[in-house]
Design a protein around this nucleic acid. Structure first.
Lengths: 347, 347
DNA sequence: CTGTTAGCGCGTTCAA
DNA sequence: TTGAACGCGCTAACAG
């Protein structure tokens, strides 16, 4: 009696103890070995048509469903890629940037077997949990966006898991895609100058994000090149409410600003609403340029002159890069897209 | 030489061939057995403080991370629950209902170890894929919403996986939470009657969803009870653009409607925008009542009188119910919440 | 073309 | 309190 032949009570039942049929069950019903069933299930190559047919019948009859955990354990693939966002769902669902980003990654994986899941942080928990999710083996790779600072990139860099950042991670050797935010801000600011505005201010995005820093830098740089001094640089955080606050501070400062560059459309929507409520005419008194060209830009009144943020395109590019990494490409070079100005009514 | 003793090249390396350290590696470094490490990792009971300390040190040194696939295979738990939405991400990200729903489920699982992931359909693919995701063993259970028809509930009903639907699945014995949509629509319609409107119409939601049917039924029923005949019943699909279309058909029909019940705030926003653009005054010429009390309801001008849809609460209740199922509750009774009217400026 | 066999990394009895 | 042994369900050599 070999060691493997020792009796196991439920070894011989048609259905394993768990309730779900296993490869073994199918094999017995079809009168073949487990390996053959496995072959049929995974593409059917190297199997005779008759046996394949018999196996498929057994699969149907039992409603067999491969156990992905078991498969994952041996193939070391999960067929799941993640879009990891270290923000709360509240933020993710209210900022259209994330919708565009997720959609872009999904588009890149359209014809790929992997599931694309979205994982974000629970309120008050750190980004470590997302790293754990990545390293736990349930994800083949990830696209990460909205990282604040370099902690997350530094944590991810030594890992063997394929990861692509959206937005410069600030750590050498880590793959990323980005859009030239400095250029975008320059286009926006230059436009304000071109229409004759001279008393300019900006509402910045989160300054712990490179996108926020760059958009501010582009604004400042363009002002300087034109020989003018910014009237105000108001800190914001990419949210609509931070735009509202910024607008109130502009109003209370009575600084007769005539041109405002706001680092996101969502903030710009908040700014404009407050301005209009205070009776300030846009663009006559204050011209406003946003950033992103998101859906709100078209919806607000007056419609928002803005910069195409290329969120979807950048994400899709990141998705492609991740696919490359997954299939063995070693260290892809960063891809940087160039934004353009979209003229509408607010400036 | 026993069968197990045959040589395996990488059996004795400090790090397994994959690169990630295993229980075995930790055990060797700590000078104990795998079983002991396992005990320490999972709660540390029944281990002496000294060994526990040694093991923890080894874990830290190696950066050991349990392989979730392996654990899952033996525990038969994934510690992941899903919010399954058979809609495309485009839809999910533009309708605040889904944000509220996801958030509600997350709230219910706030202090639970499980990850709550959001899975939706890729464009053009059927809901089967979500069922497969559920049955593949990577999910312990799920909350499903936005199911059209009974196909999905019927597919899920025979499964042993815990599932809770949001919205009556129309299949006996399947757990669900819901809000009384008929009552909600009655409240809305009655309010239009109360403020003296008599030429009423409705823009319905998707009629292949019970919520859509019920809101229409509540409207029709209330009209009938008041002895009036609806001027029009315009089919919509819960999206903003379908609201716009409906508004255009109202305008072109020149039916001098004076009260409109729109089955979602998002549609109502579309309706109002079109009406205002056409020069129709809301509420003076046409009073509008929406449904959901979502964030848009407060944002539009005039602000929207609406019905509290209780999306968050219903989802949270569903999440609680799923937790119950996960911990052994057998067949929970449906929970039905009662909506209320929120008075604002549009009616 | 098909079956046999050996683990993937882990939790869990059962003895000691 | 600890260790040895077993198997979760599956894929991947390797024989035949």
């Amino acid at each position: 009696m070999t060691p493997d032949a020792r009796s196991r009570p439920d070894r011989n039942k048609g259905i394993s103890s768990n309730g779900a049929p296993t490869l073994q069950d199918v094999a017995k019903l079809a009168g073949v070995s487990r390996a053959t069933v496995s072959r049929v299930v995974n593409g059917g190559a190297l199997v005779s048509p008759e046996t394949a047919e018999a196996v498929e019948a057994a699969v149907r009859k039992l409603g067999y469903q491969p156990n992905l955990a078991a498969r994952m354990l041996v193939t070391r693939r999960a067929d799941v890629v993640g879009v990891l966002v270290p923000e709360t769902d509240l933020r993710v669902f209210t900022d259209p940037y994330f919708a565009a980003t997720y959609h872009g990654v999904v588009a890149a994986f359209g014809d790929h077997p992997a599931q694309v899941v979205l994982a974000m942080s629970k309120p008050g928990e750190s980004a470590d949990r997302l790293v754990t999710y990545l390293t736990s083996g349930r994800l083949d790779g990830a696209v990460i966006t909205s990282h604040h600072g370099t902690d997350l990139p530094l944590a991810v860099a030594p890992l063997t898991h394929p990861v692509v950042f959206i937005g410069n991670p600030g750590v050498p050797g880590v793959p990323y895609t980005d859009v030239d935010n400095i250029l975008g801000a320059q286009l926006a600011t230059q436009h304000l100058l071109d229409i004759g505005r001279r008393r300019l201010a900006t509402v910045t995005g989160s300054l712990d994000m490179i996108a926020g820093q760059d958009r501010r830098a582009g604004f400042v740089r363009t002002c300087r090149a034109a020989g003018i001094t910014p009237v105000a640089i108001i800190p914001g955080s990419f949210t609509e409410s931070s735009g509202r606050e910024a607008a109130r501070s502009v109003l209370s400062a009575r600084s007769d600003i005539d041109g405002l560059f706001v680092a996101s459309d969502l903030m710009a929507a908040g700014v404009m609403d407050e301005l209009l409520q205070a009776g300030v005419k846009v663009p006559q008194e204050i011209a406003v340029v946003g950033y992103d060209d998101s859906e709100v830009a078209r919806r607000v009144t007056p419609s928002l002159t803005t910069v195409r943020g290329l969120a979807h395109e950048t994400a899709q590019e990141a998705g492609r890069m991740l696919r490359g990494l997954l299939s063995g490409v070693v260290s892809p070079r960063p891809v940087i897209l160039e934004p353009e100005l979209i003229l509408r009514d607010s400036a």
